[in-house]
């Protein structure tokens, strides 16, 4: 017995929800970035699963999208963490509740 597409999609949905939990539930800027990374990883897992279980897997479209998505996620993480450091220099905290003014 081999796993079905349904199992992959359930795992990916659970991973996405955990990412959403981290992004919406925590008040720490780095936890929000971790949540966004988890959600992107769940989307990647979906791409790979639909490629593997799809009608024509000899055409590696899903793999290509996943590779590009990983590259873009890396760029997003670098810029996001640089923003966290820049904001930390200004406010001396990483609690997003304290980031309540644009200039000052």
């Amino acid at each position: 017995m081999t796993p079905t597409l349904q199992l992959c999609l359930i795992i990916s949905a659970a991973l996405f929800s955990i990412g959403l939990l981290a992004a919406l539930g925590r008040r720490h800027a780095i936890f929000i970035l971790i949540g966004i990374e988890l959600m992107l990883a769940a989307a990647n897992l979906n791409f790979i699963a639909f490629w593997r279980f799809g009608p024509e897997p000899q055409n590696p479209t899903g793999v290509m999208v996943a590779i590009f998505s990983i590259a873009i996620a890396a760029a997003e993480a670098a810029v996001g963490l640089a923003l966290v450091i820049a904001v930390y220099r200004h406010y001396r905290t990483t609690n997003v509740r304290r980031f309540n003014q644009l200039k000052g």
Binding site: S17, I18, L20, L21, A23, L24, G25, R26, R27, H28, I30, L33, I34, A77, A78, L81, V84, I85, Y88, R92, T93, T94, N95, R97
Partner: peptide
Amino acid sequence: LIVFTILLTRREDEDAAGFNWGGVIVA
């Protein structure tokens, strides 16, 4: 990169560890 950022911005403010229960319900 994440570990570097944590070490650069480390301060023990415990109110940052709070949980927003609305986000849990949405998730």
